[in-house]
Nucleic acid binder design. Sequence first.
RNA 1: GGGAGCAUAGCUCAGCUGGUUUAGAGCAUCUGCCUUACAAGCAGAGGGUCCUUGGUUCGAAUCCAUGUGCUCCCACCA
Length: 885
Amino acid sequence: MSTLATTYSPKEIESKWYEYWMKHSMFHSEPDDREPYTIVIPPPNVTGVLHMGHMLNNTIQDVLVRRARMTGKNACWVPGTDHASIATEAKVVAKLVQEGIQKADLTREQFLEHAWEWTRKHGGIILEQLKRLGASCDWDRTNFTMNEEYSRSVIRVFVDLYHQDKIYRGVRMVNWDTKALTALSDEEVIYKEVNGKLYYLRYYISPLTPEGGRGAYAVVATTRPETILGDTAVCINPNDPKNKHLKGKKVIVPLVNREVPIIEDDYVDVEFGTGCLKVTPAHDVNDYLLGEKYSLEVIDIFNDNGTINEKGQLYVGQDRFDVRKQIEKDLAAAGLLEKVEPYTNKVGFSERTDVAIEPKLSMQWFVKMDELSKPALEAVMEDDVRLFPPKFKNTYRHWMENIKDWCISRQLWWGHRIPAWYLPQGGLVVAETVEDALMLAKEKTNNPKLTAEDLRQDEDCLDTWFSSWLWPISVFDPNVPGHPEVDPNRDLQYYYPTADLVTAPEILFFWVARMIIAGYEWAGGYPFRNVYLTGIVRDKLGRKMSKSLGNSPDPIELIEKYGADGVRVGMLLSSPAGNDLPFDEALCEQGRNFCNKIWNAFRLVKGWTVDENEKQPEHSAIAVEWLYALIQKTVTSVADDFEKYRLSEALMELYKLYWDEFSGWYLEIVKPQLGKAMDKTTYEATLKIFDIMLRLLHPFMPFITEELWQNLAKRADDESIMLAQQPVAREHDEHVISSFDFAKQTVTAVRSVRQEKNLSMKEPLRLLVKGDMNAAAKNLAVRLANVSEVAPLNVDDKATGASFMVGTTEFLIPLEGLVNVEEERKKLQTDLAYSQKFLKSVLVKLNNEKFVSSAPEAVVAVERKKQADAESKIKSIEEQLQKLG
RNA sequence: GGGAGCAUAGCUCAGCUGGUUUAGAGCAUCUGCCUUACAAGCAGAGGGUCCUUGGUUCGAAUCCAUGUGCUCCCACCA
């Protein structure tokens, strides 16, 4: 008997095999003659920790990579991390604050030292966590968006774009983060509903009466009364009768007493508020546009940290939200506040620091997107890059067709510093290094005496995505864009384009679209063939799992509790591409249970003893033939599922194959009776089947399959299931499967009779048959339903008992004295009614001449078969009823 | 405001170009079992006006339209 424990304990097994794989460099890939299969990981934030989204994402990638590796491809999964400039900088700043250090008190170099220290301390934790999951990344290729080589490629790309005139500097209204003190791209702003107030303010018409008294006034509605300090106009709709009296007038801005013009523009909504709009060009995007159109003065009243500056005249140095409260009181006191209404509007917040965004005019660097985006749009529209699920094509197109220039400068220190140097007498040069910059500067200024100290490098860093859009290229060749003198890079040639990208739809534009753009621009084509977009992991209440809500389980704890394989199965069981994953620990439990099932089947098989002289029983031969056929069928359909990225379905098919078919039916049939030995033929077939099934399951459940595969047969020291091949489907006889299905149904029916009549499994039953009953059914009935004898059922047979039908074959289990005639009759009558109704519906079709003439012949034939079967069924039920008397 | 998508069993989802579907799976539920691999298990069972209403068709869960409800993306009326 086996000494294996009755439950599978994953812990030691997982670390044992992961170390084994690492020791033998089994994840490592080098270019060779095989077809490459490449995935680049969506690089997580370098100082991040693993969350459920990563779990899902990386499980999927690992399944794809492991399967590719087992189908003869040279699989390479490149891991790495992203420096995540603003996110990391925010963390470092917060940590310094805790230590009583302000960022402003540090020099750039000092701050970067702290940041690197932080990175060294926390960096890569997430990659270690991925190992627990079983991720088969090529760790030798681990990359980082801010390591030296990678950084060089980022700078090179900037310079290249600059020389192509695709990068420019300009004053623009940007989203200003008053906490991080940086501009944000539109994508980094999250709009939230905020319960605020709508303030109605009085703007008196100028001039005031000679005595300083007040006459008529305009009422302006605003949610941000503090911005009146920067008002430079009031705007009305030219077609608004309500405000006709204001045309051509000037009004006095409350409190600051600035005289500003009334301007007219269709932009103003007559219906909203009073139809009067205050215009603050420096602090509102739309106002800015109005300001440009009507050449209004621009008064920027805010400091970078959101406090009022001298230009605001009042409240100087106070925070914008404090001012809002104060100004309400002051306006009221001055009789300039008409009324205040509660009002809900949407306000932009910084994705990273969660402070309200302040629209702000500032000098920033931009990438011109119109030309760059064209090939990338086409790539997806023409399916050169395929999105899964394809519904994202629409979203993608919409975005790419309305793409705006990309603000790439960030007022941060942690990141790639913009390679632009300002000249002492104005102007700038852009170059890869300060040396190159100096050369250019000398040329440009005609001043050979210029030194590096005379040049001042731009203070800003590049947007994180300006480095990660190069990820699929730079991890293979940091010399891109290619310098002619550099040898063509073998890795890039071999691994690029990558096969699949697995990522979240949230970063379709941030990252995916931009990688496609970069691919066409610098690597001669698309960066990946397929994009698998995962869903969002949600909790039971449908909320997105997030740190702030505290509703996300710790993945490592889950692994401890259910095992990595169990969690992987749990993640994949209900996660079709693009669908959200409503996560429930019960799914991991199901995964763990499956591991246990696999484990116990192995225990059973391992416990068998083999007797060479034993002949293979017929039922075993039948079971082997059937399961082989079923496996072939499943292999084909699993391959099809993978083609379509239907991973959950592939897994579910294998789950059922292993649990129901293999464990539930096959093993129950072939297992020898207590104390008996097993015949060699069946034993070897079973080992072979076990081997096939482990290989099929390995991409999903790497650890337990390796453990059992290693124990299934003698293996060499450098062998691994992960290097074995996936089973290839062979032809199978569908008839074998359908015969066996008939047998299963027969067994189930007999068992059902036992249950209903409360008959113990130990009590043998006779089974009378009228019609076809194949050998499989006979064998299985005997083997699995304790049927002692199968005999023909004669029409005049007076036997009473429980009857049932499988297909058109009629069965009777004689049960003298045990049958309640009334109950039996009722049951038969229900069956009869059902069949009659069914027959009727079939006949309606067949009696419809149009159906018979227009439907394809095969469809009509099917209906005729239904009719014949139903008729025969009805006939036999009626006979049964007669017999009951 | 603009766009996209979804609605099938208690839950999560299959159901592909309309026809062997008076609709399938897993989980959950109920009943009976500690049967010598596994109670993290075994055996059996129940459960659905395929969101509404129309239309196209010989035939609709499937195609079209309308309504309802939900989700996401984009825009950001102060």
